[in-house]
Amino acid sequence: MAPGGSVGLIARDRIDTLGEGLFWSAREGMLYWTDILGRRINRLSPATGQVESWETPDVVGWIIERAEGGFLAGIGRSIAQVAFDPFTIDILAQIPGQTEATRVNDAAADPQGRLWLGTMPFSCDVPTGAFWRFDGTVTRADAAPYTIPNGPAIDPKGRFLLHTDSAMGVIFRYPLEDGVLGARTPFVVFEDDWGSPDGMTFDAEGCLWVACWGASCVTRFSPEGVPLRRIALPASQISNCVFGGANLDRMYVTSAANGVEEEHGGALFEVDPGCRGVPAFLSGN
C-alpha cells in the first residue's frame, strides 16, 4: 500500500479519554466530536483554531446535525436533542432494554435522515450490544448481538450500509432499502496486523476510510474492500475519521488515551488525505 499524506496535531488544552463521534458541520464550518468516557462534546473552529468543550451528564457516543437545526447526540442510553450557545440537552427517546452496564457508541444518518446507532457493554467483552434505527421511534435493526458495534457508514447513494463489530475484526455490508437492512455479508475481514476496525467514512471516489484501533493508522479500502493506502498516526488507539474543511479535503481523526501511556494518545489529528469526502447526511428527526 502507498504511504499517506501529512499529519498535524490540533492544539488544545485537554485530551480525550475516548475520542469518537466526529461530525463536520458544513452549515457552521465547524468540527464536532465527543469524548465518550470523558463525558464531553467538543467543537473546533478550523478558521480560528478555537476549541470549545461542554460537559454532558453521562457518556456521550456521537453527535449528528439535524436538518432543521441543532443536533442530536447519543447520551448514556438515550437519544437527545442538543443545542449550543446556550448549551441545552433534551431527551427525545430511550433505547429499549438497556441497563447501567451498557452505553451508546457510534452512529450515522442515511440520506432519508434516519439514524443508525449501536449500543454496547462498558466491559467491551460480551456480546450484549445491538444495532438500532431511529426515525422518531427506536427499532432494533439487526437481530445479531454485538460486542463493540462501530462505525456505521452509509453508501453516498443510499444503496447499502457498512457496520462493524470491532471485537470480531469484520466490517459487514448490508443492503439498505426503505429503511430496512438486508442480510449482512462480510465486506472486509481484518488481518491480525491491521488492528481493529472502528469509525468509518466514505470519500468522493466511493472508497472507504477506516480508523484502525491498535494499529496507529487510518486505512483506505477500495469499493471492493481491497486495502489501498495507509496513513500512519502517532497514537495507537485510532477511533474515528471524517472529512472536513470548506472543500472536504481535510481529514480529522480522533484517538483515545484510555489504557495507554503515550505522548499523543487522546489527541485530535488533521490529515491531508489526498482526496475529498462527501457531505454528511443530516438527521431528519
Rank of each mutant, 00 (worst) to 15 (best):
G8L: 10
R12F: 05
D13K: 05
D16F: 10
G19F: 09
L22D: 03
L37N: 13
N42W: 08
R43K: 06
L44R: 05
P46Y: 00
A47E: 11
T48E: 07
V51I: 14
V51T: 13
W54S: 03
T56I: 12
W62T: 09
F71S: 02
F71R: 00
G74I: 02
I75N: 04
I75E: 04
I75Q: 03
R77G: 13
I79D: 02
Q81L: 15
T88G: 11
D90N: 09
A93E: 09
A93R: 10
I95N: 00
G97V: 14
D106P: 10
A107I: 10
A109L: 11
D110H: 02
G113D: 03
G113S: 06
L115G: 05
M120R: 00
F122A: 11
G129I: 15
A130G: 12
A130P: 10
D135F: 07
D135Q: 06
D135Y: 06
G136L: 04
R140Y: 04
R140G: 10
P145N: 09
K157D: 14
G158V: 07
F160L: 10
L161A: 08
L161V: 02
H163D: 11
V170E: 01
V170N: 01
I171F: 08
E177P: 01
G179R: 00
V180C: 08
V180S: 05
A183P: 00
T185F: 06
F190V: 07
E191R: 15
D192Y: 02
D193K: 15
G195L: 08
P197S: 07
G199P: 01
E205R: 13
C207Q: 14
C207H: 14
V210I: 14
W213A: 08
A215P: 02
S216L: 11
F221W: 06
S222M: 15
G225Q: 13
P227K: 04
L228W: 12
L228Y: 11
I238A: 05
I238S: 05
I238V: 12
C241K: 04
V242E: 10
F243W: 08
A246T: 15
R250N: 08
S255H: 05
V260E: 11
E261M: 15
E263T: 14
H264T: 07
G274F: 00
V278R: 03
S283K: 02
